[in-house]
Computed example of a mutant assay.
Amino acid sequence: MAPPEVGRENSSKRHVMMAGVMAGLFSRFVIAPLDVVKIRLQLQWQNVPIFDQNPANLRVGPTYRGMFHTMQTIVAHEGIPGLWKGNVPAEMLYMAYGAAQFLAYRETSLMISKLPYNVNNNVKSFVAGAVAGGAATLVTYPLDLLRTRFAAQGNERVYMSLYHSVQNIYQHEGVKGFYRGSGAGIAQIVPYMGIFFCTYEASKAYLSIPHLDHQLPAGWSEATAGGFAATVGKTCVFPLDLIRKRLQVQGPTRERYVHRNIPVYKGIRSAAASIFRTEGVRGLYKGLTVSLVKAAPLSAVTMWSFEESLKLLKWMEPETVD
């Protein structure tokens, strides 16, 4: 398979970082409502029967029954802005993550290309993607945690502002509080990004072959390949993503979110065992449908906007590779 013509390795570090920021900013705003819905579903521990009027049961929070019902419930009780809860830290997260991810991918790809022996393109894409995902997650994890906690808030405000959230977490949970669930985050993102970039590069190369009977319009190969790669990768690692969300809302504020009955977990194994025991295998895949509905367009928009931003930057300001 021919090397991908994405142009990351042939672009300057500054252009790659700027394009990553622009891609993160645009894609996050478009996909924000689905992200909030996914987080609410992932945090829902057990369903309370709709006919059960016992106050002790009703205090655990609303019961969500699927993607559309969750969205309707949020709008009904919290208004349309409720679908964009946590958008400020999330925008910061996506911008920083996009810059770190694409830069790390570029640098790792260049290092592999300079090895004294040939490396299969699929292996190269997997390794570069895994390194990029791990590095970007470590750099931006506190913002990911803040995004989750704001999205988990209902009408009761746990945190009044971004500044208050940082101050509160540091005061009551220490620096470690910003990295709750980071182990699950790394364990999830490394294989996910490896699978994603490997699948993306292979799909994009195939869709870009000139002699295909039905050539896709300009930009569609990136979007299609990105959506397909996200679907494959997300399905493979989803249980770890759910565990990460459950761990991120642990701590002294655990019972103040929309779902007030989230159990106490001591780590990845504890969370996985508890969820499997009390909620079954399906419990590990809560929110998978909306996650896939979100992941495909998010990755499609991200990869398309990144590629187009990179082309625009190179056209506006031609640079030599650094």
Results as ranks from 00 to 15, higher is better:
7 G>W: 05
7 G>T: 07
7 G>P: 06
8 R>N: 14
17 M>A: 15
17 M>S: 13
18 M>K: 09
25 L>K: 00
28 R>T: 13
29 F>D: 01
36 V>R: 07
40 R>D: 00
45 W>S: 05
47 N>F: 12
52 D>M: 12
55 P>K: 03
62 P>E: 07
66 G>D: 08
70 T>F: 05
72 Q>H: 10
74 I>R: 05
77 H>E: 13
80 I>S: 08
81 P>Y: 06
83 L>C: 00
84 W>D: 00
85 K>M: 06
90 A>F: 02
91 E>W: 11
100 A>M: 15
103 L>E: 14
111 M>W: 13
120 N>H: 12
157 R>P: 00
160 M>H: 15
165 S>F: 10
167 Q>T: 09
173 E>G: 11
176 K>V: 11
178 F>H: 13
179 Y>H: 00
186 I>V: 12
191 P>W: 03
193 M>C: 08
195 I>P: 07
197 F>S: 03
197 F>K: 09
204 K>N: 14
204 K>P: 09
205 A>P: 04
207 L>W: 04
209 I>D: 14
214 H>N: 15
215 Q>S: 12
222 E>F: 08
225 A>G: 02
226 G>N: 02
228 F>Y: 13
232 V>Q: 02
235 T>C: 09
236 C>H: 06
243 I>P: 00
246 R>G: 10
247 L>Y: 02
247 L>I: 02
254 R>E: 01
259 H>E: 13
261 N>R: 10
265 Y>I: 03
265 Y>L: 05
268 I>V: 14
273 A>V: 14
278 T>A: 15
278 T>V: 07
280 G>K: 05
284 L>T: 00
285 Y>I: 06
287 G>C: 09
291 S>V: 03
291 S>L: 07
306 F>V: 04
307 E>H: 15
309 S>N: 01
322 D>F: 10
